[in-house]
Amino acid sequence: MSGRVGVVVFPGSNCEHDVVEAIEGLGGDAELVWHGARSVAQVDALVLPGGFAHGDYLRPGAIARFSPVMDAVRSFAADGGLVLGVCNGFQVLTEAGMLPGALQKNRHLRFLCTTVSVRIERSRSFISRLARPGTVLRLPINHFEGNYTCEPETLAELRAEERIVARYCDNPNGSIDDIAGITNEAGNVVGLMPHPERAYDALLGSSDGAILLRTMVEPPRGRSRAATAEAGATPGPAGSRLV
């Protein structure tokens, strides 16, 4: 059974159709979810795509975090649902407090639109489930505010808990510890600055992003939402993770 992926559309999102195209091109089903929706039922995974949600006014993601759909995204994630934020979606997830840290303006105030090499790290994230740690992927980046930063204690936690999903091989934007993507404690919420959906097929110049996106198209056996909901209902050790 192929995974059904919801792609959240905020006013100002502009990569939603690229994500739909990629998911469908990889054999999954995708549907757009308007930011005013109060529920995200019937999907196996959610993507917050790139763009300029709510014009990026104040700060990228600062207003989007209050969109009605974000309550649903939050409870979907709390139930173990897979959530990927790409670029602006990553910014929304940090502003929403679903991922730690913040994305500042790039070092040297340079808008970056290029393709970079990104190394997949050993992490607990769902998105790198199919990729061997150390794998180097060529992925497009396209951002002005991609310079990841966080408190030193947070960075220490991210490292110790294997929550750094990917690092730039040649840091383009000043991100602390070359971070290109991180995950939450449970590994089911991921933020990535690079755009895997723009590299899902060789026709686009690289198909390196496919290995990441396929994790949402092919949910692993026993880790579907229904299975985790059941697991959550049975008494288990306190603090056990859903994913």
């Binding site: 104040l58 700060r59 600062a62 209050f66 940090t94 502003e95 730690p100 840290g101 913040a102 500042q104 930063t149 966080c150 408190e151």
Partner: peptide
């Protein structure tokens, strides 16, 4: 809650 991001 909104105007400043306390991380930065």
């Amino acid at each position: 809650r909104l105007l400043a991001n306390p991380v930065i």
